[in-house]
Write a protein that binds this DNA or RNA. Structure first.
Length: 322
DNA sequence: AAGACGAAAGTGGTTGA
DNA sequence: TCAACAACTTTCGTCTT
């Protein structure tokens, strides 16, 4: 399973994720792929680390048997670190003996601290897995988050920050990239890290790693919120439609996606006669009633839904009297 | 009593000088 | 680095049902 994945990944690399160049150097023996343009080592670290992590919490036996042949996982850790301190490309580019010596020295030094980092990584990835299962995140997101975290470790971004907060930040970023966004509140709740701390590290890590994250789409939240509110699928569809219209008239940009999603759901539930209170919607969306009100006022005004909403409200009132 | 509404003041983050 | 700014929250009083 893991092997399958590894071969798939390796063949998948066609260009450098950093500079986009297709001028790649492949060292099959070491399992490295290096970009000749910018020197980035593209070698798929995800495989290495996710294997480590699986062995860690599934069973120790597998690990022992593989370790007996060659301590491949350890050298891979070293190699991964080499990209940080030694700039592996130097070996290929500046081939002078001086440079090589320097590189070797740094490498040796790294091997000493690598076990500490390895340990840290294992704890972190276990934590990551815990949060991920708590939030019922798909496997692909979990792996993306693991990749982001290991990259962050290699770049030394964890220094000065708590390990947990970086894990949470990585998960948050991974969710966004896979279009299954969780709110910062949910992250905070499941990780025990303060919301603003997660946001801070998330932004920092995303910037440092050059991860581009699209502004999240409010529609991505609809399904989850709707099921939390036990709304029908018609309401869901309606809410998504409202969102589309709202986006077309640029009502969505610059606003918090959760607030807009919540307001759309509120309107949808109202017009379809399964009204939820602002309070209920606000709670599941993690925003306040005030925000819902503001968004929803804008929505009905700009989408000329006022009359429909009014009618529905009167209908509801009449029904209640009965 | 509960829900909806909106004003006012406060918070945290972004942006531009 | 600092101040202006927009979005959002908190809090609170009022109105409707």
């Amino acid at each position: 399973m893991a092997l399958e994945k590894s071969s798939m990944r390796k063949t998948a690399i066609k260009d450098c994720p950093d500079c986009g160049s297709t001028n790649l150097f492949r060292n099959m023996e070491k399992g490295e792929v290096i970009c000749r343009e910018c020197g980035l080592v593209i070698e798929d670290k995800l495989i290495d680390f996710s294997q480590e992590w699986r062995d860690f919490d599934e069973d120790g036996e597998k690990r022992g048997s593989r370790g007996a042949g060659a301590p491949s996982s350890y050298t891979q850790f070293d190699r991964g670190l080499g990209t940080e301190v030694g700039q592996a490309v130097d070996v290929y580019r500046l081939g002078s003996s001086k440079e090589r010596d320097k590189f070797q020295r740094l490498r040796k030094w790294q091997s000493r601290i690598s076990t500490a980092i390895e340990r840290n990584l294992k704890i972190a990835l276990a934590e990551l897995k815990r949060i991920s299962s708590f939030l019922k995140l798909p496997k692909s997101v979990e792996e993306e988050a693991a990749r982001i975290y290991t990259l962050a470790v290699q770049k030394g971004l964890v220094r000065g920050r708590s390990m947990e907060s970086v894990v949470a930040g990585a998960l948050y970023a991974a969710c966004r990239r896979h279009e299954v966004p969780r709110t910062l509140d949910e992250m905070a709740e499941s990780s025990g890290i303060e919301k603003k701390e997660i946001g801070r590290t998330y932004r920092f890590v995303a910037r440092e790693l050059g991860i581009s994250v699209l502004p999240s789409n409010p529609a991505d939240y609809i399904a989850r919120f709707a099921s939390a509110l036990e709304l029908s699928s018609e309401s869901q569809t309606k809410a998504v439609k409202i969102l589309e219209q709202a986006r077309d008239i640029e009502l969505t940009s610059g606003r918090g996606p959760t607030g807009i999603a919540a307001a759309a759901l509120y309107v949808a539930s109202l017009t379809l006669g399964e009204k939820r209170t602002q309070r209920e919607v606000a709670d599941v969306a993690g925003v306040t009633e005030v925000t819902i009100r503001n968004r929803y006022k804008e929505l009905i005004k700009r989408l000329k839904l006022e009359k429909i909403v009014e009618k529905k409200q009167k209908k509801l009132a009449a029904k209640k009297k009965k």
